[in-house]
Design a protein around this nucleic acid. Structure first.
Length: 156
DNA sequence: GCCAACGTTGGC
DNA sequence: GCCAACGTTGGC
């Protein structure tokens, strides 16, 4: 199993929204690299840091778990959706997503600032890189474990 | 609200 | 296939 980081703006879809729903399609991703991670590399059971972006403060607020095989993102076919893609067809869907299930919410969210403050321990962690906009990122196991420990309130 | 970073588009 | 223009992301 691999470990990941998935970004969401809490004003749009927060960790509490996922907790309330229990499970959700990770729809609306319109970046090819992020799509490819979902289509090719994310496997059921993989754990994902749930990241709040455009938040105060931005950071990892909990965990989601990949739940099921990749499938076409239904919003690409919906003309009413802001994610509608007229170039996508049912026969050849352009956008693929996975479903994720709520796993846990951290009692102590791990802020971007705190991760940047320990840049030596998190060398290579993509989310702390300037200009990194990718909304689905692989995370090394050791980095993942340290962030989860901090989120659960244990000394890192 | 600003703006750096960077992905996408489209003219050539 | 280059690359300038444009749009979006997302921290600050």
């Amino acid at each position: 199993l691999r470990t990941w980081l998935i970004k969401s703006e809490p004003d749009v879809f927060s960790i509490d929204d996922l907790a309330a729903k229990g499970r959700s399609g990770w729809d609306g991703v319109r970046n090819y690299q992020a799509r490819n991670y979902m289509r090719d590399d994310m496997k059921p059971g993989d754990l994902c840091l749930f990241w709040h972006s455009n938040a105060t403060p931005p950071g990892a607020v909990g965990l989601a778990r990949v739940d099921g095989a990749p499938r076409p993102d239904p919003t690409q076919f919906d003309p009413e959706s802001e994610y509608y893609d007229p170039k996508s067809t049912a026969a050849e869907p352009r956008w693929v997503m996975v479903d994720v299930a709520f796993h846990e919410k951290f009692p102590n969210p791990v802020t971007l600032e705190s991760l940047k403050a320990r840049a030596d321990a998190f060398e290579g962690l993509l989310v702390i890189k300037r200009g990194m906009r990718l909304s689905i990122q692989p995370v090394e196991q050791a980095h993942f474990d340290a962030i989860v420990a901090a989120g659960r309130g244990q000394a890192p």
